[in-house]
Amino acid sequence: MKLLVPVKRVVDSNIKPLVKSDNSGVEIGGVKMSMNPFDETAVEEAVRLKEQKIVSEVVVISIGEAKCQDTLRTAMAMGADRAILVTTEEPLESLGVAKILQHFVTKEQPDVVLMGKQASDDDMNATGQILAAKLGWAQGTFVSKLTLSAGKAEIIREIDDGQEVLELTLPAVITTDLRLNEPRYASLPNIMKARKKPIETVALADLGLDTAVRLVSQSVQESSSVREGVIVGSVEELMDKLQNEAKVI
Protein backbone atom coordinates (compact mmCIF):
# COMPACT_ATOMS: atom_id res chain seq x y z
CA MET A 1 0.00 0.00 0.00
CA LYS A 2 1.22 3.48 -0.77
CA LEU A 3 0.54 6.65 1.19
CA LEU A 4 0.80 10.25 0.10
CA VAL A 5 1.28 12.66 3.00
CA PRO A 6 1.06 16.40 2.30
CA VAL A 7 3.00 18.53 4.77
CA LYS A 8 2.76 22.28 5.26
CA ARG A 9 5.45 24.60 6.50
CA VAL A 10 3.93 26.97 9.05
CA VAL A 11 4.96 29.40 11.79
CA ASP A 12 6.02 27.23 14.70
CA SER A 13 3.12 26.80 17.08
CA ASN A 14 5.22 28.03 20.02
CA ILE A 15 5.65 31.39 18.38
CA LYS A 16 3.22 34.09 19.31
CA PRO A 17 2.18 35.35 15.88
CA LEU A 18 2.74 39.03 15.38
CA VAL A 19 0.41 41.18 13.31
CA LYS A 20 2.29 43.49 10.93
CA SER A 21 2.06 47.11 12.00
CA ASP A 22 -0.07 47.95 8.94
CA ASN A 23 -2.43 45.02 9.70
CA SER A 24 -1.80 43.61 6.24
CA GLY A 25 -0.85 40.18 7.53
CA VAL A 26 1.11 38.14 10.02
CA GLU A 27 4.83 38.72 10.33
CA ILE A 28 6.61 35.58 9.21
CA GLY A 29 10.02 36.97 8.23
CA GLY A 30 12.72 35.66 10.56
CA VAL A 31 10.21 33.60 12.51
CA LYS A 32 10.84 29.96 13.29
CA MET A 33 8.95 27.73 10.90
CA SER A 34 8.05 24.10 11.48
CA MET A 35 5.94 21.33 10.07
CA ASN A 36 2.24 21.82 10.76
CA PRO A 37 1.71 19.71 13.91
CA PHE A 38 -1.38 18.03 12.42
CA ASP A 39 0.70 16.96 9.41
CA GLU A 40 3.42 15.74 11.74
CA THR A 41 0.84 13.40 13.24
CA ALA A 42 0.02 12.18 9.73
CA VAL A 43 3.69 11.55 8.92
CA GLU A 44 4.13 9.68 12.18
CA GLU A 45 1.12 7.48 11.48
CA ALA A 46 2.30 6.77 7.97
CA VAL A 47 5.76 5.80 9.19
CA ARG A 48 4.30 3.54 11.89
CA LEU A 49 2.16 1.80 9.26
CA LYS A 50 5.27 1.32 7.20
CA GLU A 51 7.16 -0.10 10.16
CA GLN A 52 4.27 -2.52 10.64
CA LYS A 53 4.70 -3.50 6.98
CA ILE A 54 1.11 -2.53 6.20
CA VAL A 55 2.36 0.26 3.99
CA SER A 56 5.21 -0.12 1.55
CA GLU A 57 5.92 3.46 0.59
CA VAL A 58 5.39 6.87 2.18
CA VAL A 59 5.67 9.84 -0.14
CA VAL A 60 5.57 13.34 1.30
CA ILE A 61 4.70 16.45 -0.64
CA SER A 62 4.93 20.12 0.22
CA ILE A 63 3.93 23.24 -1.66
CA GLY A 64 5.46 26.67 -1.30
CA GLU A 65 8.80 28.43 -1.32
CA ALA A 66 12.09 26.55 -1.61
CA LYS A 67 12.44 26.51 2.19
CA CYS A 68 9.66 23.91 2.32
CA GLN A 69 12.37 21.39 1.62
CA ASP A 70 13.32 21.70 5.30
CA THR A 71 9.84 20.44 6.17
CA LEU A 72 10.16 17.59 3.68
CA ARG A 73 13.55 16.66 5.12
CA THR A 74 12.05 16.59 8.60
CA ALA A 75 9.41 14.19 7.30
CA MET A 76 12.09 12.02 5.69
CA ALA A 77 14.12 12.09 8.92
CA MET A 78 11.02 10.73 10.64
CA GLY A 79 10.90 7.90 8.10
CA ALA A 80 9.16 9.03 4.91
CA ASP A 81 10.70 7.43 1.80
CA ARG A 82 10.66 10.20 -0.71
CA ALA A 83 9.61 13.78 -1.20
CA ILE A 84 8.06 16.06 -3.78
CA LEU A 85 8.34 19.83 -3.61
CA VAL A 86 6.01 22.02 -5.62
CA THR A 87 7.56 25.46 -5.70
CA THR A 88 5.62 28.69 -5.85
CA GLU A 89 5.79 32.14 -4.32
CA GLU A 90 2.08 32.74 -4.86
CA PRO A 91 -0.41 32.66 -1.98
CA LEU A 92 -2.49 29.51 -1.89
CA GLU A 93 -5.71 28.43 -0.22
CA SER A 94 -7.32 25.05 0.45
CA LEU A 95 -9.02 24.84 -2.92
CA GLY A 96 -5.85 25.47 -4.90
CA VAL A 97 -3.85 23.12 -2.70
CA ALA A 98 -6.45 20.40 -3.23
CA LYS A 99 -6.14 20.85 -6.99
CA ILE A 100 -2.37 20.51 -6.83
CA LEU A 101 -2.68 17.44 -4.64
CA GLN A 102 -5.25 15.98 -7.03
CA HIS A 103 -2.67 16.31 -9.80
CA PHE A 104 -0.11 14.35 -7.80
CA VAL A 105 -2.62 11.77 -6.64
CA THR A 106 -3.34 11.02 -10.27
CA LYS A 107 0.37 10.72 -10.92
CA GLU A 108 1.39 8.77 -7.82
CA GLN A 109 -1.75 6.63 -7.37
CA PRO A 110 -1.61 6.31 -3.59
CA ASP A 111 -4.13 4.17 -1.72
CA VAL A 112 -4.54 6.76 0.99
CA VAL A 113 -3.83 10.46 1.25
CA LEU A 114 -3.13 10.96 4.94
CA MET A 115 -2.95 14.57 6.07
CA GLY A 116 -3.49 16.94 8.97
CA LYS A 117 -7.11 17.94 9.49
CA GLN A 118 -6.05 21.57 9.40
CA ALA A 119 -2.98 23.78 9.32
CA SER A 120 -2.12 25.57 12.52
CA ASP A 121 -1.77 28.90 10.72
CA ASP A 122 -5.03 29.43 8.82
CA ASP A 123 -7.04 26.75 10.69
CA MET A 124 -9.29 26.32 7.64
CA ASN A 125 -9.80 22.58 7.98
CA ALA A 126 -10.84 22.04 4.37
CA THR A 127 -8.12 20.75 2.05
CA GLY A 128 -8.61 17.04 2.76
CA GLN A 129 -12.36 17.21 2.27
CA ILE A 130 -12.07 19.22 -0.95
CA LEU A 131 -9.51 16.79 -2.29
CA ALA A 132 -11.73 13.82 -1.43
CA ALA A 133 -14.64 15.46 -3.28
CA LYS A 134 -12.53 16.23 -6.33
CA LEU A 135 -11.26 12.65 -6.45
CA GLY A 136 -14.67 11.18 -5.66
CA TRP A 137 -13.04 9.27 -2.81
CA ALA A 138 -14.26 8.39 0.64
CA GLN A 139 -13.18 10.77 3.37
CA GLY A 140 -12.38 10.16 6.99
CA THR A 141 -11.91 13.40 8.88
CA PHE A 142 -10.58 14.16 12.40
CA VAL A 143 -9.29 10.63 12.81
CA SER A 144 -7.92 9.50 16.16
CA LYS A 145 -7.48 5.83 15.29
CA LEU A 146 -6.65 4.27 11.97
CA THR A 147 -6.58 0.60 10.98
CA LEU A 148 -5.67 -0.18 7.39
CA SER A 149 -6.31 -3.50 5.71
CA ALA A 150 -6.71 -4.63 2.11
CA GLY A 151 -9.01 -2.18 0.37
CA LYS A 152 -10.40 -0.85 3.63
CA ALA A 153 -9.71 1.58 6.42
CA GLU A 154 -11.44 1.41 9.76
CA ILE A 155 -11.31 4.77 11.45
CA ILE A 156 -12.41 6.36 14.67
CA ARG A 157 -13.40 10.00 14.19
CA GLU A 158 -13.59 12.63 16.91
CA ILE A 159 -17.03 14.22 16.71
CA ASP A 160 -19.06 16.55 18.91
CA ASP A 161 -20.60 14.02 21.25
CA GLY A 162 -17.86 11.44 21.29
CA GLN A 163 -16.49 9.19 18.60
CA GLU A 164 -17.77 7.60 15.43
CA VAL A 165 -16.46 4.39 13.88
CA LEU A 166 -16.56 4.20 10.08
CA GLU A 167 -15.26 1.79 7.52
CA LEU A 168 -13.96 3.49 4.40
CA THR A 169 -13.50 1.90 1.01
CA LEU A 170 -10.04 2.68 -0.31
CA PRO A 171 -8.72 4.78 -1.91
CA ALA A 172 -9.57 7.46 0.62
CA VAL A 173 -8.50 10.77 2.08
CA ILE A 174 -7.95 10.60 5.83
CA THR A 175 -7.33 13.68 7.98
CA THR A 176 -5.73 13.40 11.38
CA ASP A 177 -6.65 14.64 14.81
CA LEU A 178 -3.73 15.29 17.19
CA ARG A 179 -5.01 12.43 19.35
CA LEU A 180 -3.97 9.90 16.70
CA ASN A 181 -0.43 9.58 18.03
CA GLU A 182 2.54 11.32 19.57
CA PRO A 183 5.10 12.07 16.83
CA ARG A 184 8.62 10.77 17.33
CA TYR A 185 11.84 12.71 17.68
CA ALA A 186 13.96 12.46 14.58
CA SER A 187 17.36 11.08 15.51
CA LEU A 188 20.54 12.82 14.50
CA PRO A 189 21.72 10.08 12.11
CA ASN A 190 18.30 10.05 10.45
CA ILE A 191 18.37 13.82 10.05
CA MET A 192 21.79 13.48 8.48
CA LYS A 193 20.59 10.80 6.07
CA ALA A 194 17.49 12.80 5.17
CA ARG A 195 19.71 15.72 4.18
CA LYS A 196 21.31 13.59 1.52
CA LYS A 197 18.10 12.28 -0.04
CA PRO A 198 17.00 13.90 -3.29
CA ILE A 199 13.78 15.90 -3.48
CA GLU A 200 11.75 15.88 -6.68
CA THR A 201 11.07 19.53 -7.39
CA VAL A 202 8.34 20.80 -9.69
CA ALA A 203 7.38 24.40 -10.36
CA LEU A 204 3.68 25.03 -9.78
CA ALA A 205 3.60 27.26 -12.85
CA ASP A 206 4.49 24.23 -15.00
CA LEU A 207 1.43 22.28 -13.90
CA GLY A 208 -1.07 24.53 -15.64
CA LEU A 209 -3.53 24.58 -12.78
CA ASP A 210 -5.80 27.48 -11.83
CA THR A 211 -4.90 28.07 -8.21
CA ALA A 212 -5.66 31.79 -7.97
CA VAL A 213 -7.09 32.59 -4.56
CA ARG A 214 -10.81 33.19 -4.20
CA LEU A 215 -10.64 34.25 -0.57
CA VAL A 216 -8.68 37.46 -0.36
CA SER A 217 -7.27 38.61 2.93
CA GLN A 218 -8.35 42.16 3.72
CA SER A 219 -6.66 42.71 7.06
CA VAL A 220 -5.74 40.95 10.25
CA GLN A 221 -5.85 42.11 13.83
CA GLU A 222 -4.93 40.69 17.18
CA SER A 223 -7.96 39.27 18.87
CA SER A 224 -8.51 41.32 21.96
CA SER A 225 -9.21 39.65 25.24
CA VAL A 226 -10.18 42.75 27.18
CA ARG A 227 -13.73 42.71 28.56
CA GLU A 228 -15.85 44.89 30.76
CA GLY A 229 -15.14 43.10 34.01
CA VAL A 230 -18.21 43.97 36.06
CA ILE A 231 -17.42 43.17 39.67
CA VAL A 232 -20.53 41.86 41.37
CA GLY A 233 -21.04 41.98 45.11
CA SER A 234 -22.62 38.62 45.75
CA VAL A 235 -23.40 35.19 44.39
CA GLU A 236 -27.07 36.23 44.03
CA GLU A 237 -26.05 39.13 41.84
CA LEU A 238 -23.85 36.84 39.75
CA MET A 239 -26.69 34.35 39.30
CA ASP A 240 -28.96 37.17 38.22
CA LYS A 241 -26.44 38.38 35.64
CA LEU A 242 -25.82 34.91 34.25
CA GLN A 243 -29.50 34.09 34.00
CA ASN A 244 -31.00 37.35 32.87
CA GLU A 245 -28.25 39.38 31.24
CA ALA A 246 -25.88 36.85 29.70
CA LYS A 247 -28.52 34.13 29.48
CA VAL A 248 -25.99 31.34 29.68
CA ILE A 249 -27.53 29.34 32.52
Binding site: S120, R214, L215, V220, Q221
Partner: peptide
Protein backbone atom coordinates in the same frame (compact mmCIF):
# COMPACT_ATOMS: atom_id res chain seq x y z
CA UNK B 1 -10.00 33.39 13.68
CA UNK B 2 -6.61 32.08 12.59
CA UNK B 3 -3.53 30.96 14.55
CA UNK B 4 -5.61 29.15 17.17
CA UNK B 5 -7.76 32.21 17.73
CA UNK B 6 -4.98 34.63 18.55
CA UNK B 7 -5.57 36.59 15.36
CA UNK B 8 -8.75 37.60 13.55
CA UNK B 9 -8.58 37.68 9.81
CA UNK B 10 -10.98 39.62 7.60
CA UNK B 11 -11.46 37.93 4.25
CA UNK B 12 -13.42 38.74 1.13
CA UNK B 13 -14.76 35.95 -1.01
CA UNK B 14 -14.64 36.24 -4.79
CA UNK B 15 -16.63 33.03 -5.27
Amino acid sequence: PIYAGSILSTVKSKD
